[in-house]
């Protein structure tokens, strides 16, 4: 086997693992949202990364009274993290980043301050409402 095909296999495995994390994340958020009675709409987007190539990744739109949340995967290879997904509120454009570090999702604000809260249903529900500026 050539070095090049070893590399290809390695990056393909990384991409599959990343897509597995994304599928799990999007499924969790969809279930938590439905539990709150919020509508969800899932679609695919195309992502291109230098090492992983071009691939299709899931995007989730969550409809909340007074706004919506977009769960938007950015990519696996990020500075200081193994994967980043943005949670963005509309119309406020408030955003937090979910970054994968030490095999779990951590929440980082736009000011680059980590929110040291566990990533779970309760955190997501509160965060979603805060992102769209619900009182």
């Amino acid at each position: 086997m050539t070095l090049q095909s070893d590399d290809t296999q390695h990056w393909q495995q990384q991409r599959d693992q990343w897509l597995g994390w994304l599928d799990q994340l999007v499924s969790d958020i969809a279930a938590w949202s439905e539990h709150e009675g919020w509508g969800v709409n899932r679609e695919q987007k195309t992502v291109t990364e230098p090492l992983l190539g071009t691939y299709s990744a899931p995007v989730l739109h969550v409809q909340i009274s007074g706004g919506r949340i977009q769960v938007n995967p950015i990519g696996l290879h990020m500075i200081g993290a193994e994967g980043r997904v943005d949670l963005e509120g509309w119309p406020t454009l408030n955003r937090v980043k979910l970054v994968r570090r030490q095999e779990q999702w951590q929440i980082v604000t736009d000011s680059n301050v980590p929110l040291r809260l566990p990533w779970c249903e309760q955190t997501f529900v509160q965060l979603a409402q805060d992102l769209i500026g619900m009182p």
């Binding site: 509309w90 119309p91 406020t92 454009l93 408030n94 736009d110 000011s111 500026g133």
Partner: peptide
């Protein structure tokens, strides 16, 4: 900056 962005975006919505 982020407060300003949210206020302007909300107006534009």
């Amino acid at each position: 900056f982020h407060d300003c962005k949210s206020h302007l975006a909300t107006y534009l919505s």
